[in-house]
């Protein structure tokens, strides 16, 4: 019921991509996001998509799963498409494709709509590649280490990473719990699906109250358990998994660097001001 959320859902298989250093993966994902913004034409997107497809093959992750990550965003995607389609203004070719009542669709508008929805979709797919192949624990380790230089200016890198990994750790647990409570209330005739907005919001009370009660109970238990094992913040704390860069990380960096090179060439090949 609440289980089909791919974004941030680790896909636990072993692969070359899974074994990459999380710090490298985070930085490369940021590089890929930059690449998405550099692209100026559908050709560029095709190159990026091919790259990600190959990476997903290397990662043993079904490409289908990444596409599925787009599903929760489908309304935003559709909205982006429609807004761009109808409200393209000035510039480009003004060749009119459809003109009906107050609606005008120009060729440039269509192109812009496709372009921006593709950009949004690719952004999500790029990040999905990282979150599918990096366990939440690795992810927060990576973030902590990347942010640790900021400790000099008293930035709470460790606390932030700890909060994040705890939050990530409890998302599936709470989802499962919510699913269970929802079913228990449905067994008592609760109706979560029909009625107007106010009625539906009211229907959430029997779900949210037990969920909060149990979240607070869990939080209390966890704090107690951590304290019982002498947790006292990040200072002087050593790590169980020491992250080390390997040859494979270098390969990954080279591959992405090459990709960005290609994208920059593509950008240079496009006429100025395109696509807007």
């Amino acid at each position: 019921m609440l289980k089909n959320i791919t974004l941030g859902q680790y896909y636990p298989v072993d692969s070359w991509v899974h074994r990459l250093d999380p710090r490298v993966k985070i930085l490369l994902t940021i590089a890929l996001i930059v690449a998405v913004f550099l692209v100026r034409s559908m050709v560029g997107y095709a190159i990026l998509l091919t790259f990600i497809f190959l990476a997903s093959c290397l990662a043993n992750v079904p490409f289908r799963l990444m596409i599925k990550g787009l599903k929760p965003l489908r309304f935003i995607l559709i909205l982006t498409f429609l807004l761009n389609l109808f409200f393209q203004s000035g510039g480009g070719e003004q060749e009119i494709l459809v003109h009906w009542w107050i609606i005008t669709i120009t060729r440039a508008g269509l192109r812009q709509a496709v372009f921006f929805s593709a950009r949004l979709a690719l952004l999500v797919i790029c990040t999905s590649l990282m979150t599918l192949t990096t366990s939440p624990i690795q992810l927060s380790d990576g973030i902590e280490l990347l942010l640790s230089p900021l400790k000099i200016i008293h930035f709470p890198a460790h606390e932030l990473a700890m909060m994040m990994s705890i939050a990530l750790r409890f998302i599936p647990t709470l989802l499962e719990e919510a699913d269970k409570i929802m079913k228990a209330q449905m067994a008592r005739g609760a109706d979560f699906e029909s009625g107007n907005l106010i009625k539906r919001a009211k229907a959430m009370v029997p779900l949210l109250v037990p969920l909060f009660v149990s979240a607070f109970r869990r939080a209390g238990d966890l704090a107690m358990a951590m304290e019982a094992r002498c947790y006292h913040g990040g200072e002087g704390r050593t790590r169980l998994r020491v992250l080390k860069l390997t040859r494979h990380d270098l390969f990954a960096v080279i591959a992405v660097a090459l990709l960005i090179g290609v994208i920059i060439l593509e950008r240079a090949a496009m006429p100025d001001g395109w696509p807007l």
Partner: peptide
């Protein structure tokens, strides 16, 4: 199914976690 669920009562494992009122 909503009507039916009321004729077939189901008490879950650890049902005390469903109390909310």
């Amino acid at each position: 199914r909503r009507k039916l669920r009321m004729r077939i009562g189901l008490v879950f494992q650890y049902p005390e976690y469903q109390l909310f009122e």
